[in-house]
Computed example of a mutant assay.
Amino acid sequence: MQKLFPKNGSKFPQLRFAGFADAWEERKLGELSNIVGGGTPSTSNPEYWDGDIDWYAPAEIGEQSYVSKSKKTITELGLKKSSARILPVGTVLFTSRAGIGNTAILAKEATTNQGFQSIVPDQNKLDSYFIFSRTNELKRYGEVTGAGSTFVEVSGKQMSKMSIMVPELSEQQKIGSFFKQLDDTIALHQRKLEKLQELKKGYLQKMFC
């Protein structure tokens, strides 16, 4: 990586990989992706549920970088009879209410309920892990922009208007890959820590009367 001093405002990051020198551009999120909401089939009709289509709720999002299996599923009929939409692999799920800003990347195509405004990147313009790595920015924007009397919610139209600084796609992919490697390493050490904590717990129970 090269460390650069800021030039021309914030269009040049202080730290970047060698080989990249072009200024970043300010774009609207909606210019780089499609923002897609979700929906819920009628819960009173059993023909809509327990099918082959994954269907996520906000409570399932936030613990993992990638998700591939939801707690509940819907049928093709349930999909047709609701506003749920099939989201492709690489979509960044974004919770838009009751805890705005939890994210995860789809490792398998799926649908969501209406508590999401999911980001479907244009593969020629936006890298999935690059935008996922900017979850804190997405969350802050959603919390500031969202509205509602009962609970705060941010709309797809509002998310589309979010301004974001982005480099060319190849630099996005380099950055995304870097942060994915870091997140994978953190997850690995977290699992090791949990195993050590369980091991210690076992020793404490067996070695003291």
Rank of each mutant, 00 (worst) to 15 (best):
Q2V: 14
N8V: 10
P13Q: 08
Q14D: 01
Q14E: 02
F17H: 08
G19A: 03
G19V: 02
A21M: 04
A23K: 04
E26T: 09
I35F: 06
V36G: 01
G39M: 01
T43L: 10
S44R: 12
N45L: 03
P46E: 10
Y48A: 03
I61R: 02
Y66Q: 11
Y66R: 13
S70K: 15
K72H: 13
G78I: 02
G78M: 01
K81Q: 12
T91D: 11
T91A: 09
V92F: 09
F94T: 05
F94A: 03
R97V: 08
R97D: 05
I105L: 07
I105K: 01
Q114M: 04
G115N: 03
G115D: 02
G115Q: 00
F116P: 01
P121E: 12
Q123T: 15
K125Y: 12
S128I: 13
F132G: 00
R134T: 04
N136P: 04
V144T: 12
G148L: 06
F151S: 03
E153H: 11
S155D: 01
K157I: 11
Q158P: 02
Q158R: 06
M159G: 08
S160K: 06
M165W: 10
S177K: 07
I186R: 04
A187K: 10
R191T: 03
L193H: 09
K195M: 10
Q197M: 15
K200V: 12
K200H: 14
G202A: 12
K206E: 13
K206G: 07
K206R: 14
C209A: 09
